[in-house]
Write a protein that binds this DNA or RNA. Structure first.
Length: 797
RNA sequence: GCCCGAGUGGCGGAAUUGGUAUACGCGUUCGACUUAAAAUCGAAUGGUGAAAACCAUAUGGGUUCAAGUCCCAUCUCGGGCACCA
């Protein structure tokens, strides 16, 4: 009796794979027909000091199962691996311990690599990349310069999110509920000069191409909402007593213009200081100062409207009447024009504001009878709107805008919620921005031949007191000569998301020294066919699309969407259903699971069997034993055979399983694929097995438990090429047909496959059943329904 | 508040196109092996009921010969966005 020893088997095969460089991507050249390529990747990990966790294992196991599936189908497969290494944890660790981030990162990578190898992943290890390696970030800097050349990387002074603990600016996407995504501190607003990428230039295309992607619906809607396109109009309001001053507003409801009874400006609006009257000046300035200082969380918590009158009036161009101009923090400077026309009768926020400050409310849309709310924001016929009375609001939008257009004070406009991507960080451990400033403070690109701008070594990694990164402490490094002119380097570094916005393309030629990616290799391998991850729904997955479109425009990429199919996997939670965390002490360490004797195959198979890949799952210490038992049974069938079956015994189940597993792999139904293999094994235990049964079992098992399957295939002296199936063998000679009476199950018939199409025969067989007969009142049914292919008879009485 | 998901045994889940609800696994119970235990193998396992049968896919309605699946309303949970004019 041989015993299944996963640790021994896994060591053996991992060594063989390493020596043979088994997973090195190959470009086959078959003259007769082109070989399909398949580029798969997981979202590369941030290598933390804690090592791999079970979430990584799930993510990598999904990609691995598919990698092996396509490899077994003899496609040209590229499955690389890399590390996203710039970031705050390494820098904070350096500040605390004095150990340089390079050193700590290298250790963590070595550990991650070692652990990943113990899981037996089919990775092309010759293509490993690391974003903090100068050979890599040289090209991140090159990407920045391309964007800079085209004006898509620019500097702007503006109010920005600032984390007082991490001492850095944060992007909108890095602020969660008013708190820093890294340390959880409440963020502040700070006025600073910052670098931005002009992602808004691609807003339209980023939105319109979402629907063509084979991505989960929830990611697509999240991106659509984030981009937040709305169509409306820009309208200029003349200031009373000053015909040359206008305030522009954005509105999606120009049809309600006659009901605009006041204007509201954001506290940051530049016109405020120009228009406010002397007697209101003090109150207005005071309000603006407090509002700007208020954190977003304070603005949200206190939803009651606040505001102050400027003392100035504007003219409603539709009515010619003068309307007061107010300031309130419910109007945001970053959206539209930072100013609105308030229509309190048809907008709840304006209504609240008007109520509080006792401002006039004029209804201009007819309310349906069944609407009782005071503030109606639906559609209807216009009223109180002079020549537009009676016009449907949906038509009036266009009518009023063209009328304004004739007067030269309005036009159609599309606005987006999405803002430009803030990319500068006042941190040491990031990719240095390849910019230097001349004596007058003008930014200049570091010329390409001077790249990479290498990280200087520093003694102390803390940002300085002015908020500049530790790079400012490297005095010699700061000085640079460009075209004979002495300049000072930028001390900000790039947001880590910049590094991950092009890494998929680096994978095709990771050692290329003449370009970020080799055009020939890109043409062959990219775009990525399958990409798998469980995070970054809007940030990373939007940025990489943006860069793809940009580099396509510049002629560097022959495609406009970087990821064809996205698999978005769920989290693995602790057995109690809660998030795993060190502080709760409920963390399951995958290496412990392997070492406890289960082995990597059991761990991987279990994580794919635990539930649908795209849903969260709770770890079960007991259930993993079931998977281990299953693999033991697979092992026993090959190494401790008991019964030999003849050629026909398992013909149906064998073909059925091959079909089922193949189809499940295509639709990423890993849990049901494993279940089908379990059924197959149960059947083989009952019936006995022949070599053909076992070869097919081993081949189908390989994507999940590659070590054991390899061991089985070796014993069976078979290769691992993915099996096909014989469709004609799927059907048994005799099938079960169900008989229902009024949709309720009453009897089961055994019917020869040849009789299945004979409805007369089926009907008489069904009606002859005792348990059917007794329901028939006159011995005759009303109707008998035999749906094609359903193996079901419904007798209607 | 708005926009997406989801709700099925004691538990994780299956049912892919409207056609046998509960596959597969865990747990539980019984049996075999064993001095015994573990491991392993086999059997049973939605609920009520002696049985016939009835009731069960969050709740209430509807469409259909037939509904977990489609339609309408409601509730609950998860996620995203959140004063975006």
């Amino acid at each position: 009796m041989k015993k299944y020893d996963p640790i021994k088997i896994e060591e053996k095969w991992q060594k063989i794979w390493e020596e043979n460089q088994e997973f090195k991507a190959k470009k086959s050249k078959k003259s007769d027909k082109p070989v399909q390529k398949m580029f798969l990747a997981e979202m590369f990990p941030y290598p933390s000091g804690a090592g791999l966790h079970v979430g990584h294992v799930r993510n990598f196991s999904i990609v691995d199962a598919l990698t092996r599936f396509y490899t077994q189908q003899r496609l040209d497969v590229l499955r690389p691996f890399g590390y996203d290494t710039f970031g705050l944890p390494a820098e904070n660790y350096a500040i605390k311990t004095g150990i340089s981030p390079e050193v700590a990162t290298k250790q963590n990578i070595d550990n991650f690599r070692k652990q990943a190898k113990r899981l037996g992943f089919a990775i092309d290890w010759s293509r490993e990349i690391n974003t903090s390696d100068p050979k890599y970030y040289k090209w991140t800097q090159w990407c920045f310069l391309k964007l800079f050349e085209k004006g898509l990387a620019y500097q702007k002074e503006s109010y920005q999110w600032w984390c007082p603990v991490d001492q850095t600016v944060l992007a909108n996407e890095q602020v969660e509920n008013g708190h820093c995504w890294r340390c959880g501190t409440e963020v502040e607003k700070k006025k600073m000069k910052q670098w931005f990428f002009k992602i808004t230039a691609y807003a339209d295309e980023l939105l319109s191409e979402i629907d063509s992607l084979d991505w989960p619906e929830k990611i697509k809607t999240a991106q659509k909402n984030w981009i937040g396109r709305s169509e409306g109009a820009e309208i200029s309001f003349e200031i009373e007593n000053d015909k040359n001053q206008f305030i522009k507003v954005f509105t999606t409801r120009p049809d309600t213009l006659f009901g605009a009874t006041f204007l509201v400006l954001a506290p940051e609006h530049p016109m405020i200081s120009k228009i406010m009257s002397e007697d209101c000046k003090e109150k207005v300035l005071d309000y603006c100062k407090t509002a700007i200082k208020k954190s977003e969380i304070e603005r949200q918590e206190n939803k009651e409207k606040t505001g102050v009158f400027t003392g100035a009036y504007a003219i409603n161009p539709a009515t010619g009447k003068k309307i007061p101009i107010w300031v309130s923090d419910y109007v945001l400077m970053g959206y539209g024009e930072g100013a609105i026309m308030a229509v309190p009768a048809h907008d709840e926020r304006d209504f609240e504001f008007a109520n509080k400050f006792d401002l006039p409310v004029i209804e201009v849309i007819e309310k349906p009878d069944d609407v009782t709310e005071k503030c109606y924001h639906g559609e209807g016929k216009l009223i109180n709107s002079d020549r537009f009375n009676g016009v449907e609001s949906t038509d009036a939008r266009e009518g009023i805008v063209s009328w304004l257009e004739e007067m030269g004070i309005g036009k159609m406009k599309v606005t987006y919620k999405m803002r430009d991507w803030l990319i500068s960080r006042q941190r040491y451990w990031g990719c240095p921005i390849p910019i230097a400033y001349d004596k007058d403070g003008n930014p200049h690109a570091i010329p390409e031949y001077q790249l990479p701008v290498i990280h200087p070594e520093v003694e102390d990694y803390k940002p300085d007191s002015t908020g500049r990164s530790a790079l400012a402490k490297a005095k010699d490094w700061l000085k640079v000569t460009i075209d004979g002119e002495e300049m000072t380097r930028e001390t900000d570094t790039l947001d880590g998301y910049a590094c991950s916005s092009w890494y998929l393309w680096r994978y095709v030629s990771p050692d290329c020294e003449t370009a970020a990616w080799d055009p020939e290799e890109i043409k062959y391998w990219a775009p990525t066919d399958i990409y798998c991850g469980g995070d970054h729904a809007v940030a990373h997955l939007l940025y990489i699309r943006f860069w793809c479109k940009f580099f396509a425009d510049e002629g560097y990429l022959p495609f406009r969407e970087p990821i064809k199919r996205l698999l978005y996997n769920g989290y693995i939670n602790a057995p109690d259903g809660k998030k795993m965390s060190k502080s709760k002490g409920n963390v399951i360490d995958p290496l412990d699971v392997i070492d406890s004797g289960y082995g990597a195959d059991t761990l991987r198979t279990y994580e794919l069997f635990i539930g649908p890949y795209n849903e969260d799952a709770a770890w079960s210490t007991k259930a993993i034993g079931g998977v281990y038992r299953f693999l033991n049974r697979c092992f026993n069938l090959v190494f401790n055979p008991e019964k030999e079956a003849d050629e026909k015994t398992n013909l149906v189940i064998r073909n059925k399983t091959a079909k089922k597993v193949t189809e499940d792999m295509h639709r990423a139904g890993f849990n049901t694929a494993v279940a089908a293999l379990m059924e197959f094994v149960n059947e083989l235990y009952k019936n006995g097995a022949n070599r053909e049964d076992l070869v097919i079992l081993s081949k189908l098992l390989k994507p999940f438990a590659p070590h054991l399957a390899s061991e089985m295939l070796e014993e069976l002296k078979a290769d691992d090429e993915w099996p096909t199936w014989d469709e004609s063998a799927l059907v048994a000679d005799v099938v079960e047909v169900v008989v229902q009476v009024n949709g309720k199950l009453r009897a089961k018939l055994s019917v020869s496959i040849d009789d299945l199409a004979d409805t007369d025969k089926l009907t008489s067989l069904a009606l002859a059943e005792e348990n059917v007969k007794k329901y028939l009142v006159n011995g005759e049914p009303k109707k008998v329904i035999i749906p094609p292919k359903a193996k079901l008879i419904n007798v209607v009485i």
